Amino acid sequence: MIENAKVRALKMIETCTEPEKLRTLIRNARKQGEEEIAHAATLRLYEVLPCEKPGTFEHDVWRSIHALEGTLTEERGKTTRLGRTRPKIARVGEQETVRDLILADKPSEGFHMLIDRHLSHLTFEAVALRHQDRFEEHVLDAAVRRLNSVDIAASR
């Protein structure tokens, strides 16, 4: 792709709010071998999919869920939903679900998947650290320890 076209595509992605347009961009970019554009459009897609208000804790949680589901769907070649996380959120809410996953003895498979794909900012641990007012000290400490355990610099 010509550099000017790439710059225009990246600028368009920054402001796009239509999931279908972003999905089309992702498909086309991958066909053309333009992984930078595909990656940027994918991250933007995860930003616009949640119904919750951007910047809120709930938006960040759903952005993480969409990212993990999108990754699983792409890798498996079929639509994949988080079969335990979504029902738990429906039962107890986002905050308790995030807290419980952070305090679990072992990191979830989703945590490792996001870390492996250089999406540490989308882990529930990172979400909790961005919304510290929602969590108790021991939860935040556990989030920092877990991120640090995989060489992601985190602090409170």
Rank of each mutant, 00 (worst) to 15 (best):
W62I: 10
V7L: 15
I65E: 05
T17N: 07
S64D: 04
E52A: 13
D60C: 12
H66N: 14
I26Y: 04
L45T: 01
E34I: 04
V7H: 13
P54G: 13
L49T: 05
A5W: 09
V7E: 15
E52S: 11
P54K: 02
C51A: 15
T24D: 05
L10K: 10
P50A: 12
L49M: 13
T15V: 12
T17V: 10
L45R: 02
C16P: 00
T15W: 02
L22W: 01
E35S: 12
I65T: 08
H39P: 03
G55C: 10
H39M: 14
I26W: 00
R23C: 04
L49P: 05
L25E: 02
F57V: 00
K53G: 04
T15H: 09
C16V: 06
R8N: 14
V61E: 08
C16K: 01
R30I: 03
K53V: 15
D60T: 03
L25S: 08
G33W: 01
A41E: 01
S64T: 13
H39K: 15
R8P: 03
L43S: 06
G33S: 04
I13D: 02
Q32W: 08
L49C: 09
G55F: 04
W62Q: 09
D60Y: 07
I65M: 05
T17M: 10
K53N: 13
H59A: 12
A38E: 05
V7Q: 14
E47Q: 15
I65C: 08
N4R: 14
T56C: 09
L25H: 05
I37K: 01
I65A: 11
P19M: 05
M12N: 13
F57P: 02
T24K: 10
Y46T: 10
A29D: 02
P19H: 07
E18P: 02
A38T: 01
R63G: 05
E35R: 10
P54H: 09
V7M: 11
W62G: 07
A5I: 14
E18L: 06
L45F: 03
N4W: 06
K31M: 13
A38P: 00
A9T: 14
T15S: 09
T42M: 09
E58R: 12
A9K: 15
W62V: 13
E36F: 09
P19K: 08
T42G: 07
L43H: 03
A9G: 09
